[in-house]
Design a protein around this nucleic acid. Structure first.
Length: 140
DNA sequence: GCCAACGTTGGC
DNA sequence: GCCAACGTTGGC
């Protein structure tokens, strides 16, 4: 199973909002970048993603699970972008800051560090395990 | 608030 | 098809 990272500006959509959406989850919509779209299309039901707060927070705060695979985003007037559905799984017991990721040599190639602007990113199994360890969470 | 990185747009 | 201009993102 592949792993992912989804970025969100907390003033727009925060981890708290995601938790409130509960098991029903929400559409991860609004993506308007072709590389991000490619990743969204590759996401399979049951796969998990880190939830990252950009802006003020700059840390990985939780884990979400894909509950609905890629489908058209009705908010996209060009009808060329889509979205997936995700639900909150749980918070990282210890949020993993961007600064900590930068300090961790084994995460040097993480997309979060290499291409911070990409809003939907793949995470390797090794990176997933490291971030889980830093976040005091059992990998799953 | 600034600026670097990146994607998109539009003129040629 | 190239590239300059521009807008947006996001870290600092």
């Amino acid at each position: 199973m592949a792993h992912w990272l989804l970025k969100s500006e907390p003033s727009t959509w925060s981890w708290n909002d995601q938790v409130k959406a509960d098991a029903k989850g929400t559409a991860w919509d609004g993506v308007r970048n072709h590389l991000a779209k490619k990743h969204l299309m590759a996401m399979k039901r049951g796969e998990r993603a880190f939830f990252y707060h950009s802006g003020e927070d700059k840390r990985i705060v939780g884990v979400v699970e894909v509950i609905g695979e890629y489908r058209p985003d009705p908010g996209d007037r060009t009808a060329s972008f889509g979205m997936v559905d995700v639900k909150a799984v749980g918070p990282l017991p210890v949020p993993v800051t961007l600064a900590l990721c930068k300090a961790e040599k084994s995460l040097a190639n993480m997309v979060l560090l290499r291409n911070s602007r990409l809003s939907v990113q793949p995470v390797t199994d090794a990176e997933w395990a490291v971030v889980c360890r830093l976040g005091a969470m059992k990998p799953a």
